[in-house]
Design a protein around this nucleic acid. Structure first.
Lengths: 347, 347
DNA sequence: CTGAGTTGGGAAAAGGTTTTCTCTTATCGC
DNA sequence: GCGATAAGAGAAAACCTTTTCCCAACTCAG
């Protein structure tokens, strides 16, 4: 109940190192930073003393002077983390080697909380901020447009004139549909999420374009929800009441892996073979889902870790004083091929 | 390509406030902190000036002096984040109101990376560290036992003599099995993960105890993997080749929600009704899975957000100088009832 | 009117590091 | 041997805030 539960010896300071080595703090500082002029012998002696005493410079004091704290803030409203976690890991990865640490700020969708976090970041003199979210077409509940520090947007709606990184959803959709075409599939359906999501339309457009380029019939995309249940329903709409195999789709491109999962299960229940009769491709490459479908699901991966890494590096260069051209950079997706599409038809 | 892409006006300092208000920095500081003695008028004038100039105290300078940085480090090796995300959110929640920010340190299972992060934390003078992981029975790849700052372990294997918070897995298992008993189920099976996990045995023990207490037959738990596939297999072992309904289990308690999902699907494929013929309970309450099963899955929730919050508060009080009794605190789970268990049998 | 006490506010040190400037001493060329 | 130069190292300011001590002026009792 009283204080002093721990021994907590105070960290050793530069002054103590200097004292032990018989030099001034100025010399000690220069020795350890490779600055200034002194005999190699002196430098080595100081280095050794620092080592022996376990000296580690106080980052707070350094930051105060250098006006760089070697910290950045990472804002997110993705409580569930399916998208932001790989992204965060990427950011962290890119920065840790530069000695930059990341403040995690979970702002939910609460602008009071967002304000609180942003002010805490500013007070702590972060060198920059990365804003990320669970949805590309929604803003975080905070205004970051007039901060005195660089801001990078990643996988969330950016402010005009800012630097942003997002996934190339249209490109990802192309990848999927082209893959079907390359396998000889000809009646390719598209089942996606709610119309309120911008990516739904972006992917649908790409879907239509690729089919048109290949001279294949374009079915109107089925929009619904991001759920397995919707996958089931969609299969009923697509397959029930069709005269024969020739009328049914032979491929379904799904808006996410959960829909794809529902589609696959519903097809199996109808005795329709995946991939023999129908190929299925999902989106997100959520491994835990994609690997649990039977057969394992081919899916579009948004490379979110890479996106996070790029965002981290971009912030770093902004902090370093490099100017970055504002705008939205779309990073390519990749197709992870598993077993839900099969080999070329008749190949 | 050159520097100075942004205007980046330097933040206003206390000195500027003091100058503008016509007082010394000492007085300004005291005015804003409610310290010292001065006329109410002076104090108000200074406050107003600070407000007008948008003064925010430099946290770095404060930390240097107070020897408290109002930051903590959060170490995790849970890349996927299913467990650590709610936990992190809880920690963050508990701390943000105290003005404490959280450094996110993803150490993977790489001890070099762990070392790097821990040193960065120490250099940045964090007030304390929370260590968390994806598994209660595994250590992070770092030694935190001799740090000069408080450490709290949450959902990971603690060092001896430390303060730790984990979920009460045995209690959670009791909750599930008792629930079955209360509904009149009598042949309750248990399908769980690999024997290499400590929680598997802990839950199995609780399962046996509850059955014994109720005078019900104990079947040997089936141990396998944490996957849907294993759920399927387990159903085959439990149900195939049984003479009739009377020999088959009428309830299955699963080690996680994915296994439960596999079990439910496999039962449906065999024409066995859930919950009419067999009740199913999962573990983890991973909503996205639990709500996608048909019927939606009753599951044990480990209350990880609460666990994180407790850990955060505990660290805060440790940092504040309160001594905490070392040891492992087990926090209760709760049962989230959905539709996979049905109403009382014959009730 | 004087001494004690109170009130309002400032000077300065502290916290740990970096950096510029200065100072002393050794070295070199002649 | 002498002046010029370079080398090695230290003093001090700076970063921004907090806090302790101190000082001046005022109030009040006697």
């Amino acid at each position: 109940m009283s204080s002093d539960a721990l021994p907590a010896p105070a960290p050793v300071t530069l002054r103590e190192v200097a004292l032990a080595a018989g030099v001034s703090v100025a010399t000690a500082s220069k020795a350890l930073n490779g600055q200034g002029r002194m005999t190699a012998e002196t430098r080595e002696r100081i280095r050794e003393t620092a080592q022996r005493l376990g000296f580690r410079p106080n980052s707070l004091a350094q930051s105060l002077l250098r006006k760089r704290s070697f910290t950045v803030g990472l804002l997110t409203n993705d409580t569930y983390g399916r998208f932001s976690l790989p992204l965060m890991a990427g950011v962290s990865d890119a920065l840790v080697d530069a000695g930059v640490s990341v403040f995690l700020c979970n702002v939910e969708d609460d602008s009071r909380l967002g304000q609180l976090h942003v002010e805490a970041m500013l007070d702590k003199r972060v060198d920059g901020i990365i804003a990320t979210g669970k949805r590309i077409d929604r803003h975080l509940p905070i205004d970051l447009s007039n901060l005195r520090i660089p801001v990078i947007y990643a996988f969330t709606q950016p402010d005009p004139g800012s630097v942003a990184f997002v996934s190339d959803d249209a490109g990802g959709a192309r990848l999927a549909v082209e893959h079907f075409c390359g396998l000889g599939r000809r009646r390719i359906a598209h089942v996606s999420g709610p119309a309120s999501f911008a990516v739904v339309h972006e992917r649908a457009r790409a879907y239509r374009e690729v089919l048109a380029e290949h001279g294949l019939p374009v079915a109107e995309p089925l929009l619904g929800a991001w759920s397995e249940g919707w996958g089931h329903e969609a299969v009923a709409k697509l397959f029930d009441g069709k005269a024969g195999r020739g009328e049914m789709p032979d491929a379904v491109f799904c808006g996410n892996d959960q829909i794809a999962r529902g589609v696959i299960d519903a097809l199996r229940e109808r005795g329709i073979g995946v991939p023999e009769d129908v190929g299925v491709i999902g989106f997100d490459n959520w491994e835990i889902v994609a690997e649990a479908t039977r057969p394992p699901l081919t899916s579009v991966d948004m490379n979110l870790a890479t996106l996070g890494r790029e965002a981290g590096l971009a912030l770093l260069s902004l902090v370093g004083g490099q100017a970055a051209a504002p705008g939205i950079r779309k990073l390519p997706c990749r197709l992870v091929v598993r077993q839900s599409c099969g080999r070329p038809v008749g190949g």
